[in-house]
């Protein structure tokens, strides 16, 4: 399953961290089993999910994509040029990809930066097994949020606006692996970004612009072939283009391949690019998260708080 593979990777990071300190001399004998991290992590993830569901403001943020996709599906009537496929289906697949992209690269970094600023990361650092549990909980939260809103988007558009759904087990399988690999490509990367961004206010500004740019240039909301070739080439470096393409292959009929730049779904390339981003993400996230946790201390937190308060005073 998606969740297992993702959190499994993260736990390796956590365990490596623990082994590192345990190996050092001078520690005490009692060692806590890894099971405790998982238990605390799942408890924590469950509680955070409950908080998310109880918070209308934050929930509506995640539902915006679903609503926009619904509106688009209802109002767009023409077909993808050169095919019999409704344009709305292409846009819905694009929004589905953007939704995963957004959870990993906008929501997650924001959560990480905010919680670091408020001191949650420091408190967990000061708690035995706190950091592994934190990472497990965050993975759980992100995976459930992403998969939940994806399912909601597909179900809602299918019900209300005759939206696309996978046809047959092959398409469902494609949907599953593209979703999994897509999350693996963006979640560690998002964690790495969250570990280095300065504070929640600047973080939003820094992430929003590039992601919006990618939304437009990745062929998520209209066929990428409309764009100049250099723009297509730049967008092809980033995961969103491939996530959208992979999801189109799962949701759209094969006849729609005619509108793809290569005339085919290029699934091996989808897998390759997303895997490459997943590897890059993990290679960046593990040291950066470790560094972020290591640098947390009371004085840093106070300094940030003072800065935030001054910034707030200036703004008001």
């Amino acid at each position: 399953m998606k969740g297992t593979s993702m959190t499994g990777k993260t736990d390796e990071a956590g365990v490596a961290d623990v082994a590192e300190v345990n190996g050092a001399p001078g520690g005490t004998k009692r060692s806590r089993p890894t099971r405790t991290y998982w238990r605390a992590g799942f408890l924590r993830g469950g509680i955070e999910l409950r908080h998310l569901l109880r918070n209308p403001k934050e929930l509506s943020g995640h539902l915006t994509n679903v609503v926009v996709a619904l509106l688009v599906a209802v109002y767009i009537n023409d077909d993808v040029p050169g095919t019999q496929t409704p344009m709305s289906h292409l846009v819905i697949a694009g929004f589905a990809a953007y939704l995963l992209f957004q959870v990993g690269l906008i929501s997650l970094p924001q959560i990480l930066v905010t919680e670091r600023e408020e001191g949650a990361l420091l408190r967990l650092r000061a708690t035995p097994g706190g950091i592994p549990a934190y990472l497990i909980a965050k993975c759980l939260l992100v995976v459930v949020t992403a998969v939940g809103s994806l399912a909601l988007l597909l179900a809602a558009t299918a019900l209300v606006a005759d939206g696309p759904l996978p046809r047959g087990p092959g398409d469902w399988l494609t949907l599953a692996w593209v979703t999994t690999l897509g999350l693996l490509a963006v979640v560690p990367l998002g964690a790495a970004i969250g570990a280095v961004l300065p504070n929640p206010r600047e973080a939003l500004a820094l992430i929003m612009l590039p992601t919006m740019g990618l939304l437009v240039t990745s062929g998520a909301v209209f066929p990428i072939t409309v764009l100049p070739v250099p723009v297509q080439q730049v967008a092809s470096v980033f995961p969103l283009k491939w996530m959208a393409q992979g999801l189109r292959s799962a949701l759209l009929p094969d006849s729609a391949q005619a509108a793809e730049p290569a005339g085919s779904w290029e699934l091996p390339m989808v897998a390759l690019v997303l895997t490459a981003w997943a590897v890059i993400g993990f290679l960046l996230a593990i040291p950066l998260l470790r560094r972020a946790a290591r640098r947390e201390s009371g004085s840093r937190m106070s300094a940030r708080l003072r800065k935030a308060e001054q910034g707030g005073a200036k703004a008001s």
Partner: peptide
């Protein structure tokens, strides 16, 4: 009894 730079989870606890 431990160097804080090398404190493990049990020490933290």
């Amino acid at each position: 009894g431990a160097d804080p730079e090398r404190g493990d989870d049990a020490w933290r606890g």
